[in-house]
Write a protein that binds this DNA or RNA. Structure first.
Lengths: 142, 142
DNA sequence: TATTGTTATACTCTATAACTATA
DNA sequence: TATAGTTATAGAGTATAACAATA
């Protein structure tokens, strides 16, 4: 680890990853703002567009306290993008699910993000395969 | 772009980059929290540890409104990590600079982050060179 | 008793607009 | 008049603690 801090190559890679992270976040927020959504709202809407979730599960996915999810879903619900449904199996649970409009918004958001992440277009299929394998190994190792 | 959305390889790379971004942010927040700092405070402290900056410049680097920087620097100053100095060249300007303690905290933060980004250790020097070149091309192309 | 979701509270970050002191 | 920094205000996200309904 002492070596990694002084190794110029590693430092440059770290800096590049920092740049990727910054660009990704920036574009994510822009895409959300284009629909007058905050980043957190867009994230929740994206999660729910995959499958409806109990409030508790949303908090786990977001790595935040469940009490925060109440407000985020409240605001999505007030805009008609999400609705709360009872869980037939457990009356304590509320399932948050996208409305039709919410699902459409989530799809648009997803497309915008795919486009935003399009710097990958500069890489050939072979390049992308190499990049995929390197990222897999990076993420798998820790 | 239509192709990119349906190409499974590209989709996987996009998802992997998303994972890298999530991990990076998570670890950044953890490192900051270990020093009882918020992400924004840690970011500003990191910026100032490179060089003292006028309030306005900090806002530009953070891509936020200058009025927000006042509070962030206030809180860093209240904790004795940053101080405001007059700019001899322009009496309107206040230069924010880390104190000795602030510089030490910034250094610790940097080390913790380098360590956190250590998944790179799983890659050989040759791998890292390839990764660096791919990231450079990704970032350069847009 | 334990769990789900909510409310209440307090803090931070954010943008907007108006203010001050310089330039 | 223009610019740098601040203040005031309001909205959103966050954590903590306490609560009601249900298990």
């Amino acid at each position: 680890m002492a070596t990694s801090r002084t190794d110029p190559l590693t430092l440059e890679v770290i800096e590049l990853i920092g740049s990727v992270v910054a660009r990704y976040y920036e574009e994510y927020e822009q895409a959300a703002a284009a629909h007058s959504l905050t980043g957190a709202q867009a994230r929740v809407l994206g999660l729910l567009s995959v499958e409806p979730l109990p409030m508790r599960r949303i908090a786990q996915k977001l790595k935040c306290e469940p009490s925060n999810v109440t407000g985020i879903v409240d605001r999505l619900e007030a805009r008609g993008l999400v609705e709360r449904r009872p869980d037939p199996a457990d009356r304590r649970v509320k399932l948050a699910a996208p409305t039709e409009r919410g699902a459409a918004t989530a799809a648009q958001l997803r497309d915008a993000l795919d486009f935003a992440r399009e710097p990958l277009a500069g890489l050939s299929a072979a390049d992308r395969t190499v990049l995929r394998d390197l990222l897999r190994r990076m993420l798998g190792s820790a």
